[in-house]
Structures are given as C-alpha cells and as structure tokens.
C-alpha cells in the first residue's frame, strides 16, 4: 500500500489554447491536497492544442480520479496518466558555479565529459553548465559541483512523450469531428 501511495505519475493534459487553463488544471490538484512535483506547458504536435506535462506523486486510485476531473473541464480535450515505464521523459538543469573554484579543482573537463554536460557561458566570475537527464543524473551532478559552491541551480519541469506511435489525442480529435453531427441531433431532442 505504502508503495502504491508513492508512485510518481506523469499526467499529460491536452487543451485548447485558452486563458486561465493552467489555473483550472492546478486547482484540481489543490482540492485534493496534492503537490505538483513538476510542471511544464507547451504547444503539442497538433496545431492549436496545448500540452501540459505534470508530474505528481500519489496513488493510482487518486490520480485516476484527478485525471477524470481534469478532463471534465470544458476546454480540456483529453488527459492521461502514465508511469515512468510508459514514457520517454527528460528534464534539463542549469548550474552556475564560480569560475575560480571550478578551474582550480582540475576536475572540470572530467566532470563535463562524465555527465555529457555543456558549457553555455563562461566568464571571469562564473560558468553556466547545462545538463539534460533524469532527475537522479542532474541531481548527481549537483552533488559533485557542490564543493565548488553552486551559485544558482534550476531544473525544468519534466517533459515526456509516450512510447506509442501517435499522440493519443490525435484519434480522439478525429472522432470528435464525427460526433459533431450526432450531437446536434441529441441536443434538439432534449430541447423539447
């Protein structure tokens, strides 16, 4: 049970591009007292459709209910939840460290190679290093850089794609177009 409670789920939400949608989605987590572990919003492969990627630690039972309540919002097209083995996901981290300290260590090149990191900016006072990877990896680099005094550190929200061929939502949008006609009929029926 304890195990169950603590699964990290990745929720993806496809929505229309409307003002205030982030708020609509996030209050559903708030109501259930769920902490959003990471969040990222961007456009999706489908024109005009926005995609939220939200990581949240909770139980399967609860995430299922939350996803249904997210889908209930009018401007949300679809929402799904995944465990880590169902998706390919990535995060990016930036580290700002003092130039002197890191150069004096003599480990700079080794670290960059070991972590497959990149140097984005270097000047007399600081170096900005970029590393993409899962949070364990970006976390490890943080540990290794810590002795030299990390001045600033930031990690992006998780982004993810599923391991299946198309975005789940593509078929759905096609189905919806078909529904259009039937729908108007039903509504007329219940008007009388």
């Amino acid at each position: 049970m304890q195990q169950e409670e603590n699964t990290l789920y990745t929720v993806t939400v496809y929505s229309e591009n409307q003002v205030g949608l982030l708020n609509q989605v996030s209050i559903i987590f708030t109501r259930r007292n769920l902490n959003i572990w990471s969040l990222s919003v961007s456009s999706s492969a489908i024109e005009g459709v926005h995609k939220f990627t939200i990581a949240c630690r909770t139980s399967k039972e609860l995430i299922e209910k939350v996803v249904k309540q997210i889908e209930k919002r009018i401007d949300v097209i679809r929402a799904f939840y995944y465990t880590d083995d169902e998706i390919v996901y990535q995060e990016m981290a930036l580290y700002k460290v003092p130039t002197d300290a890191i150069l004096e260590s003599g480990k700079f090149e080794k670290l960059i190679r070991k972590y497959n990191a990149r140097i984005l900016e270097m000047n007399k006072t600081f170096v900005v290093i970029e590393k993409t990877g899962h949070c364990q990896e970006t976390g490890q680099l943080f540990e290794e850089l810590s002795p030299y005094g990390v001045l600033q550190f930031v990690r992006s929200g998780r982004i993810a794609v599923t391991k299946c061929k198309v975005e789940h939502v593509t078929n759905y949008i096609e189905e919806q177009e078909v529904r259009r006609v039937q729908e108007s009929q039903l509504l007329c029926d219940c008007d009388i």
């Binding site: 929505s15 229309e16 009018i74 401007d75 949300v76 097209i77 949008i173 919806q176 177009e177 529904r179 259009r180 729908e183 108007s184 039903l186 509504l187």
Partner: peptide, 12 residues
Amino acid sequence: CDYIRSYTPYPS
C-alpha cells in the same frame, strides 16, 4: 452552439 471539440456532453 451545438458542438465544442473539447467537450463531450453525451458520451456514447
């Protein structure tokens, strides 16, 4: 209005 893409009021 009788259709909103992101809203399915009468699920099949």
